[in-house]
Simulated assay, not measured.
Amino acid sequence: MKKLLLASLIAVLTGCASQMPRIDNSLTAKGQSSRVRFVVLHYTVSDLPLSIKLLTEKEVSAHYLVTDEDEPRVYALVDENRAAWHAGISSWKNYTALNYSSIGIEIVNPGFKDMPDGRHWYGFSERQVDQIVALLKQIKERHQIAPENFLGHNEIAPQRKQDPGPLFPWKRLAAEGLIAWPDANAVAAALPQYEAQLPDIAWFQQKLAQHGYATPQTAVLDEQTRNVLVAFQAKYRNSKWDGVPDAESAAILDVLTAPKVKP
Rank of each mutant, 00 (worst) to 15 (best):
N81M: 12
N81L: 13
N81T: 08
R82V: 08
A83H: 05
A83Q: 05
A84I: 04
W85K: 11
H86P: 00
H86D: 01
A87Q: 11
A87M: 10
A87E: 05
G88T: 01
I89K: 14
I89T: 14
I89P: 00
S90H: 02
S90K: 03
S90R: 01
S91F: 02
S91W: 03
S91A: 14
W92E: 04
K93C: 13
K93T: 11
N94G: 03
N94H: 10
Y95S: 06
Y95M: 13
Y95G: 00
T96E: 12
T96V: 14
T96W: 10
T96G: 08
A97H: 10
A97G: 09
A97R: 10
A97L: 06
L98D: 07
L98S: 10
L98Q: 11
L98V: 12
N99V: 01
Y100C: 03
S101R: 15
S101C: 12
S101D: 13
S102G: 13
S102Y: 07
I103H: 08
I103T: 09
I105V: 15
I105Q: 06
I105T: 06
I105A: 02
I105C: 06
I105H: 03
E106V: 11
E106M: 15
E106L: 13
E106F: 14
I107L: 15
I107N: 05
I107R: 08
I107P: 04
V108S: 14
V108G: 08
N109S: 12
P110C: 15
P110Y: 15
F112L: 05
F112Q: 07
D114V: 09
P116A: 07
P116M: 07
P116S: 09
D117R: 06
D117Y: 02
R119Q: 12
H120A: 09
H120D: 11
Y122M: 06
Y122K: 06
Y122C: 04
Y122E: 05
Y122I: 04
G123S: 10
F124R: 00
F124Y: 08
F124D: 07
S125L: 08
S125P: 00
S125A: 13
S125N: 05
E126C: 02
E126G: 05
E126N: 06
E126Y: 04
R127H: 04
R127P: 00
Q128I: 01
Q128A: 06
Q128G: 06
V129P: 03
V129M: 14
V129A: 07
V129T: 08
D130V: 02
D130I: 06
D130W: 02
D130N: 11
Q131E: 13
Q131W: 02
Q131D: 04
I132S: 03
I132Y: 05
I132D: 03
A134D: 11
A134E: 10
L135N: 02
L135K: 03
L136M: 15
L136E: 07
L136C: 09
L136D: 07
K137G: 10
Q138C: 03
Q138P: 00
I139W: 09
K140C: 03
